[in-house]
Amino acid sequence: MSDAVVLAADIAAGHDGDAELVVTVRYENGVVGVVALDSDSAFDIMQSCGAASSADLVGRPWHEVLKGV
């Protein structure tokens, strides 16, 4: 079983009119899924893993992205 990894991070419109970050993850079992993050959560993970932008998340192991939260 390989580590989950971020495949893409796109901006989308959330229900409340705020932008949200839709992160595409390839999970440890090979399945590709999406996770929609609100702005606080998305900025928090970007900061905690040292990503300068949403594009900077792409290619990172998912556990590394989440480790600081």
Binding site: A9, I11, A13, G14, H15, G17, D18, A19, E20, L21, S39, A42, F43, M46, Q47, A52, S53, S54, A55, D56
Partner: peptide, 27 residues
């Protein structure tokens, strides 16, 4: 109806998430 994204520079918005310098300043 479609959903619109609305923001001001008062709060950090993910609208700018692709732009590193904007992310840094808005935080």
């Amino acid at each position: 109806r479609p959903i619109d994204i609305s923001f001001s520079l008062l709060r950090p918005s993910l609208f700018f998430a692709r732009l590193p310098s904007w992310v840094k300043i808005l935080r």
